Simulated scan of single mutants.
Amino acid sequence: MRRALPWLLGTALVLGAGVAVAITPSNTATTQAFLVHGDADEAATGRTLTAQVRDASFAERITVDDGEWDASGNWLVVTVVASAPRTEVGASIHLATLVIGDRTFQASERPRTSLLGADLRVGTDTVGMLAFELPPDVDAGVGELRLVTGYTTPHLDDVVVLPVSLDDLPSAAEIDVTEPAWEWS
């Protein structure tokens, strides 16, 4: 037994070290954003943003309401209802991405009437549109709309994640991306 004791202790130390390595988070995991997932029918609330997808549709062309700008392509236009949950300081969506599988698309900043950068209020919903220019082959599947109040994906902060099903969405020849508007419930 005396000869086996060092082997047993050595084996226990090696197993303990393996367990410690396996459960220790990576360097990137310790600074990642917290994903706050919502459902298709209800709003998700993070620290700085409350949001819900109201509607989505494809369009062959998008315009802005004064007719000064338009673009053709495979556009996904998502109508979002958003508000500030606690404070209006810095309350606006500055980064909106759509993740479909392993591909990520950023909301276009070209339509100046989109929800990007619109001021959000506490207790008052703002309804606005986000436009994503997608490749022609993207027209089905399930995506995640990720909304952030900062200009980059935050570290150690939250990201509101809302599901968007692209299957069976209506398609229009043209959609007018209207100015965000307040909505009282």
Rank of each mutant, 00 (worst) to 15 (best):
G38M: 04
A22P: 00
T30P: 00
G141V: 01
E179D: 14
F58S: 01
L130V: 08
A107W: 11
T149C: 12
D176I: 14
S171L: 04
W69F: 13
D70Q: 15
P25N: 13
N27F: 11
D168R: 11
T31E: 13
L76M: 08
T30Q: 14
V77M: 10
L76G: 08
E42I: 03
I93D: 03
D41M: 06
S26H: 10
H94K: 12
L169P: 06
L13C: 14
E144R: 14
V138T: 13
G128Q: 01
D158C: 10
L9I: 13
D102A: 14
E133P: 02
G128P: 02
D176N: 15
D176K: 12
R54P: 00
S57F: 04
S83N: 11
L169S: 03
L120S: 09
T178E: 14
R61M: 12
V177L: 10
G18C: 04
L95T: 12
E42W: 06
A91Y: 08
D39A: 14
L156D: 14
V127C: 00
E88L: 03
V53D: 09
L147T: 07
P154H: 09
G16D: 11
V53S: 02
A20T: 03
H94Y: 11
V77H: 03
G73M: 08
L49I: 07
A20H: 03
T30V: 15
R54F: 07
G101F: 03
A84R: 04
T153H: 11
V164P: 08
T45P: 00
T104D: 11
P111E: 03
L116R: 08
V36H: 05
T24W: 14
A12K: 04
V127W: 02
A131I: 05
R121Q: 13
T24G: 07
D168F: 07
D139E: 11
S83M: 12
Q52Y: 00
P136Q: 07
D137V: 10
L15T: 12
T104E: 15
L166E: 07
I23H: 06
S171N: 13
Q52R: 15
A22G: 04
P6N: 09
A82W: 01
T24R: 15
T28L: 13
L116D: 05
R61H: 10
V81D: 15
L162A: 09
T24S: 13
I175S: 10
V21R: 13
L156W: 02
G143P: 12
T63N: 10
A82T: 03
P136M: 07
D70M: 12
V159R: 03
N74G: 08
L145D: 06
A118R: 01
G101W: 02
P154W: 06
W69P: 00
L156M: 12
E109R: 14
S72Y: 00
A33Y: 06
L116E: 07
R112W: 09
Y151D: 15
A118P: 05
G73V: 10
D125K: 05
D167P: 11
R61P: 00
T152N: 07
T28M: 12
V122E: 10
A59V: 08
